[in-house]
Design a protein around this nucleic acid. Structure first.
Lengths: 400, 400
DNA sequence: GATAGACTTGAGTCCGGTCTCACCCTTGCG
DNA sequence: CGCAAGGGTGAGACCGGACTCAAGTCTATC
């Protein structure tokens, strides 16, 4: 745990009260707080049976007007509130949804959580939150605890498509689940995603058309090696799609990219910086860089700045996720935007559908991302441009 | 609810399976999922009484080695998991903490939540989240639901220091609470804050020393009027402190600020933009602007950019909260940084202390903020500088 | 006036754990 | 040998609602 310096002050409001009754505070009273009223208490006060009180309070069954009135009045007088735990015990439903994501502080997830939370609250559900930092052990823990707490459903961003027994087990045990931002090939579970592969392909095609031959890609995704190796299967569909789209475009253009242009494992600021430096120092250094998300983009941009490389004059840059600041930096960044809030809403909607009892086949909901062209991308130039010209010529030759 | 376009596709994994058994999917099995095993089931399998099984499982009381072993084996065989709801019912503790903040998607709160979540999880607590959008009715709802769900404690950012009966009621009812980022004068409840008043005072003093006479302040805080009026009491201590610090510095400098420089109610992008425009069109327009947080800062910066005002040449700018992008924009922004993550950790730590039974007097924990000087602040110039000179001369005259 | 049917009502069970209490069986010591 | 001390065990109460069931009350109809 990070060290926290705590300067503990006595509040002025306390010192004001202290003059009169120094030993009293809300927390002291709390220890002798009276047990909250139960249905039995209400029934006793209203002089009816527990069953009748429960009926009047719960609004079910048949209750005569005078009894209903007496019960409601008693409940109000006793400040009665139903114990949701007890209720959940026999209804089997807790009105709570678990949300398991990598990190709340990531703006993308923050927005998605907000979307899900809004949609769920509208239907009377609360949200329990768990951060995994993309670690499967933390994810397993989180799922287990949520199952123990009898959440009615789970929205999750699976950390590793290779470790999923806990996920399918949860669904098999009757806990509906919706994947957010990712899916797991071979696991039949609803998901909400963005057409990242198309988006990445489109962006890459535009870069290739602008004469860029080398396009760098930097991602935080966990992988066995820091550099992409042909045949590697990424266990995060969302990043796999991003990279897949890039490679699609290369393939369509008939160009073989240098695998070293694709950097993985850039989880920390230091790793991102190192990856960026190494990319730029390659003999066939890319002339454009694509950041896998805004958090990576931030550090890439920082390195570019430090190396006095001008964007887009010296190197083109674009990133996934449109952040409020994307258009404020110099130059404004071209981004591949994802509708994070709507994704959260869609995940919640899909889950609510399951909670309503739908047993239709699981379905991948693919929302549309959008390429927002700003000023961080420009044609490749100099030697690289010539290379592109040569490639173009080669393609024409090959075509004939 | 915002419209969401859903392009619903059937996943390829499904179509692959479909060939073999089109009618089977995890969600269909789910409806006939077997009830999870209970202590009674384990006891039956292990051929011991429910009480013995519970003892072996719970690790309390006296259990002979052979029985313990049989029970544990049976539990494993049945894949037994204790029902946290049932457990909470008799222990009275749910191992869950409610977090009530304005908005998760605000990076400041996102980080604070993460800090709290990490510290709480370390002690076996989960987090239920509620967003209030600074609306007291939503806050009251959230607190009520959390109390109903028997959370063991609450971390809250009270939306309005004028509407707090639900908060004190919760504490009186025995639910410990810690305020995050704010406190409520007169309400004796633990809080974790930053010395914003000192910080704002320091920043303002520096601006005044640089010759700025007019310093604008824009905040999203809810207030009866869009423009500050002398004597106004803000119901958000965090913003009140920011503004208080600014006015402190003015007072110390013996200068009377124009109340119109202080803008409130700038909740939306449009409101922020309007406030900024109006500020800049004042006859005694400020030469420096302070944004109350990074979200406000973003839009202020945008307007400055649109009006072709150069920062800091034409107008100095600084904002509360240090965001990763603050140092990336042009010019890098001078900020008043708050340790958001540590605040979350501190709030959780304070709450855990209460959960351990502490009944000491509530305490305001004030963490240190930091002014990070970058390049968005410069000396005032032209007419304003002369004004400052005159003021300086006047003060000297007054002193003699 | 009898009776079916609907409306009210209270007693009691259940959910799945925790925990108390009484009882049995050892063992050790006077 | 008698008895206390204590480990080991099972029966059952309890948490606070939801819900079943049987019984009682009232009206409407024949």
């Amino acid at each position: 745990m990070s060290p926290v310096s705590l300067g503990c002050e006595v509040s002025y409001s306390l010192s004001k009260i202290a003059v009169k009754a120094p030993e009293r505070n809300l927390f002291m009273n709390a220890s002798q707080a009276p047990r909250p009223a139960t249905v039995a208490d209400v029934a006793r006060t209203a002089k009816v049976s527990k069953a009748q009180a429960a009926r009047a309070l719960g609004g079910y069954g048949a209750v005569s007007e005078p009894v209903r009135e007496r019960v409601l009045r008693a409940a109000e007088g006793l400040n009665y509130r139903p114990n949701a735990l007890a209720r959940s015990m026999n209804t089997g439903r807790s009105q709570t949804i678990g949300v398991v994501i990598a990190e709340v502080e990531n703006p993308f997830f923050g927005l998605a959580i907000r979307g899900a939370s809004d949609a769920l609250r509208e239907h009377g559900y609360d949200v329990v939150l768990a951060n995994t930092d993309e670690r499967t052990d933390a994810e397993e823990d989180a799922i287990r605890v949520m199952l123990d707490k009898r959440v009615d459903g789970i929205i999750a961003s699976p950390a590793d498509a290779g470790v999923t027994s806990h996920l399918s087990a949860a669904v098999a045990a009757g806990c509906p689940m919706v994947f957010l931002d990712r899916h797991v090939p071979g696991l039949d579970i609803d998901s909400v995603e963005v057409d990242l592969r198309r988006l990445a392909g489109q962006a890459t095609a535009e870069l290739l058309e602008l004469g860029h031959r080398g396009i760098g890609f930097i991602s935080a995704v966990q992988a066995p090696t820091d550099v992409y190796e042909p045949g590697l299967v990424l266990q995060n569909s969302s990043v796999a799609d991003r990279l897949g789209g890039i490679r699609d475009a290369y393939a369509r253009a008939g160009i073989a990219p240098d695998p070293r242009w694709f950097r993985l494992n850039a989880k920390t600021a230091e790793a991102i910086r190192a990856a960026t430096h190494e990319l730029l120092e390659l003999d066939d250094a890319p002339t454009a860089i694509v950041a896998s998300d805004s958090m990576v983009g931030l550090d890439v941009l920082r390195v570019l700045r430090e190396r006095s490389l001008r964007v887009p004059h010296d190197v083109s840059f674009l990133m996934f996720d449109d952040m409020p600041w994307s258009s404020l930096v110099d130059p404004p960044i071209t981004v591949l935007s994802q509708p994070a809030y709507d994704m959260g809403v869609a995940a919640a909607t899909a889950l609510l559908e399951r909670l309503r009892g739908s047993t239709t086949a699981p379905c991948r909901r693919v929302l549309e991302g959008e390429m927002i062209r700003r000023e961080s991308v420009a044609p490749a130039h100099g030697a690289v441009q010539e290379t592109a010209a040569r490639v173009g010529a080669a393609r024409e030759t090959a075509a004939t």
